[in-house]
């Protein structure tokens, strides 16, 4: 079996409104059209697995990999329930989920597969798969977003994905399910008048998209903390950390911004990244490089007493 590899990646929105009610807003409609463009690109690729990291699936016990081969249920958005339910029948690559779990554990992470009838697949993953893989042409994998993990742990999770992909022989497209700025309107708006919550969020989103459009994924990964602070980034932008680590932490990509629209105030973008030989840009890197996770550093917890000889 030849070695597997990541053949590309997409950043996709974490909200379901463009799926539930595209006609309600010009921006959501535009995203729906752009999903179709991405879907066509995926269908033209030779990918045999879609691997999602979703900020809408939060975990506490380490990292969870969806391993039910055929999840069949429905999801109702916690806020936007009046827009209807999303019924799903998905196809998951259970073998890959198990391999990913093993690779994550080998790098020191707590990880487990989950396969339970009726498990609530998160609304971000369901919306993404309905738009990009509606007929289940490709099997998928989903990994959760640990609420306590920071950059180091998330990088290790991304590297474990790369390990699993290599070992699996799969040709994989990564999907980071995440908003950019994640400030939502806290009141009911006319969908047609949706806009990015603030000018500051919008400016930061556009700067990040400018870099991603140039293929500078690692540069964005290095900027993620600042972006999160300035623009209320979605889950610290862990999806970017995960994608960058899984793809080798460099800027050797051809980037394409398919779309950027507001969804209830958040920054929703569809961005594609294809590996190329030539590196773009390169800022100063000031973040640590981590290969193995050594556990939580609960510095206030009592330490085991040392034996003195």
């Amino acid at each position: 079996m030849s070695e597997g590899k990541v053949i590309g990646a997409y950043l996709v929105p974490n909200q379901a409104l463009p799926v539930l009610a595209p006609e309600a807003s010009p921006g959501w409609q535009s995203l729906a059209h752009s999903y179709a463009q991405v879907r066509a690109e995926i269908e033209a690729s030779d990918a045999d697995l879609l691997l999602l990291f979703s900020t809408r699936w939060v975990s506490i016990i380490g990292h969870q990999m969806q391993a039910d081969p055929a999840p069949d249920y429905w999801v109702v958005d916690e806020d936007f329930h009046q827009f209807g339910s999303l019924h799903y029948q998905l196809k998951m690559d259970a073998e890959f989920a198990s391999l990913y779990q093993d690779c994550a554990r080998a790098r020191g992470l707590t990880a487990r597969t989950v396969a339970y009838p009726g498990f609530p697949i998160d609304v971000g993953s369901v919306a993404t798969l309905q738009m990009l893989n509606p007929e289940n042409r490709l099997p998928a994998g989903i990994v959760s977003c640990n609420m306590y993990s920071d950059r180091a742990e998330t990088l290790v999770l991304g590297k474990a994905a790369a390990d699993a992909i290599r070992q699996s022989g799969r040709k994989v497209l990564l999907l980071g399910v995440s908003a950019l700025s994640n400030r939502m309107f806290g009141h009911w708006i006319e969908p047609a008048s949706d806009r990015i919550h603030s000018l500051k969020d919008d400016e930061w989103n556009r700067k990040i998209l400018e870099l991603l459009g140039e293929g500078r994924l690692e540069d964005v990964s290095q900027l993620a903390r600042e972006f999160h602070r300035q623009a209320n980034g979605d889950s610290k932008l862990k999806a970017i950390w995960w994608m960058a680590a899984a793809m080798g932490q460099h800027n050797h990509y051809r980037g394409r911004v398919f779309d950027y629209q507001p969804v209830w105030g958040t920054g929703a973008a569809l961005v594609g990244l294809q590996p190329t030989a030539k590196a773009e840009g390169g800022l100063e890197y000031d973040e640590d490089e981590v290969d193995v996770f050594v556990g939580d550093r609960n510095v206030l917890a009592p330490q085991p007493s040392k034996n003195h000889e």
Binding site: I61, Y116, F119, P120
Partner: peptide
């Protein structure tokens, strides 16, 4: 059926 997405091993 309520399945806890965080502790599905404990709550279904």
């Amino acid at each position: 059926l309520s399945v806890d997405p965080i502790f599905p091993n404990l709550f279904r």
